[in-house]
Design a protein around this nucleic acid. Structure first.
Length: 276
DNA sequence: CTCATGACCTGACGGC
DNA sequence: TGCCGTCAGGTCATGA
């Protein structure tokens, strides 16, 4: 579910409840979703330490403690944080962190695609979850010519799949990849390596504008997304093409023009008149 | 290496 | 009402 803006919104709403707190217990309910370390190692790395910082890299949350370890958390499609007193019996729990005064930070996930892991804080960038991630969308070093160069490595892949590839720009998912290409007037089937510097510049501009705005609006709720305060994202009203098959194009106005095709196994929405 | 596909998992929704 | 197929914010392993 969550792409970069949603993960960032979770980070912003979870941080005030978590940073500075001591984690008095760690209970893992779904050990298959703990990667690289054993559940026991994960628990030992976090329990009894204090949360120093909650940050984000791409779609991953990084919970840094005052000891040597950082927990890495990927929310998959439906991962969600709930902070509440005590531990009610709850289906779909992945992990629960106990804080003071009976408060619990629970990660639960209906589809159970969430993933957690542990790294030494100094080596967190080398962790397999993060090692191959591309640029952050707002990284100043990501210039149009750098982007163009990165797109050259793909032989025939279309630009839509490449945007979903976390190795170029980290954090774009299916909603924003569609929206960004519509805003940039680029056809999703366009081969990525054929983009010129000017097109890369436009694409970078729309990516930054859309992600910033989506972050400002607390992300997009289409179905399940809630932040750590239980609130919906408000960006859904800004979506121009995502899930709008058969609707008029908001740019050229042609009726019934938004198409849905499948690229790289994912639904792709676009206006064939505006996106050549 | 590159790319497409299926697998992982559960729920919501539309058609019959 | 109920059953079935399809689809859903992600990522990884597999094999051509």
């Amino acid at each position: 579910m969550p792409e970069l803006p949603e993960v960032e919104q979770v980070r912003r709403t979870l941080a005030p409840k978590l940073v500075g707190q001591t984690v008095s217990s760690v209970r893992i309910f779904y050990p298959e979703r703990v990667f690289e370390v054993t559940p026991v190692e994960f628990r030992r790395g976090i329990v009894d330490s204090r949360v120093k910082k909650l940050s984000r890299r791409g779609k991953y949350l990084l919970m840094q403690t005052d000891r040597q370890y950082t927990a890495l958390i990927g929310l998959g499609m439906t991962g969600r944080f709930i902070v509440e007193p005590s531990l009610e019996p709850l289906d779909y729990l992945i992990v629960a962190f106990g804080l003071k005064r009976n408060r619990m930070v629970k990660l639960y996930d209906m589809r159970r695609f969430s993933r957690i892991s542990l790294a030494e804080t100094g080596k967190v960038g080398q962790h397999p979850f993060l090692a191959r991630l591309g640029h952050e969308f707002d990284d100043k070093r990501l210039t149009p010519s750098v982007l163009r160069k990165e797109l050259q490595r793909f032989r025939r892949r279309n630009i839509k799949s490449v945007l979903l590839d976390q190795g170029v720009i980290a954090g774009l998912g299916n909603i924003y990849a569609n929206e960004v290409l519509f805003a940039a007037k680029l056809n999703p089937e366009r081969e990525a390596h054929t983009l010129n510097v000017n097109e890369c510049s436009v694409l970078l501009g729309t990516t930054r504008r859309i992600l910033r705005k989506a972050i400002e609006m607390g992300g997009t709720t289409v179905r399940n997304f809630r932040d750590a305060d239980g609130r919906d994202g408000r960006y859904a009203s800004e979506l121009k093409v995502y899930l709008r098959e058969g609707q008029p194009c908001p740019r050229c106005g042609k009726k019934n023009e938004i198409r849905r095709i499948v690229l790289g196994g994912r639904s792709t929405f676009y206006c064939p008149r505006c996106q050549k």
